[in-house]
Design a protein around this nucleic acid. Sequence first.
DNA 1: AATTAGGGCAACCGCGAGTGG
DNA 2: ACCACTCGCGGTTGCCCTAAT
Length: 198
Amino acid sequence: MDKSVCNNSQDVEVRKGPWTMEEDLILMNYIANHGEGVWNTLARAAGLKRTGKSCRLRWLNYLRPDVRRGNITPEEQLLIMELHAKWGNRWSKIAKHLPGRTDNEIKNYWRTRIQKHIKQADQTFTGINPENINHDQASTSQISSSFLPDHAVETYSPTSFDGHMENNFHGPFPFPNESNDTVWSMEDLWSIQLLNGD
DNA sequence: AATTAGGGCAACCGCGAGTGG
DNA sequence: ACCACTCGCGGTTGCCCTAAT
């Protein structure tokens, strides 16, 4: 899947779609050596044919060393539900209270897991057509009593999450000891991947 | 074994807010 | 005050994988 787009007459190619390991390496090496900055500038300076926006997203959601992946714990699930009941779809705000979790991850988790349970619960307990319900605020707190910790353990299946990750290496990446010229090799990344359980 | 359907996740898109010239 | 640019956010889409048929 090598989608790319030429934006203008000067043939500035912009890559889209999934990131390759080479691109990840370039971005990680660049940030390790220069730090984060203005993303558009960074993308160009690093030689990536990506938008700054794309680089930022990739870094924040996947490459950042403190990103935790997989296995949302029952405690985290409960916290997500509490905070969602309080703030609604303010994913970034919610994510700030879950160290290592990204807004995107929480948002996906909510949509694929919790919202599904809510719909099921709505149908089971009320017989109301879930299409007619605004789940964002009200129904969350209404339903949350059915998600007590032990129930959360029962309903959450970690294996279904981990099973999807074979083709990508995992965060978090422990950055190597800071030297002035930190360069990641393929071997580094693969060994990290192995350490993370592949 | 092949096909289909659904789930789960990564990534893109559009919009609004913030900032500097 | 206006404009251009960047960032951050939330919604949505597209793709891959797995389970079911």
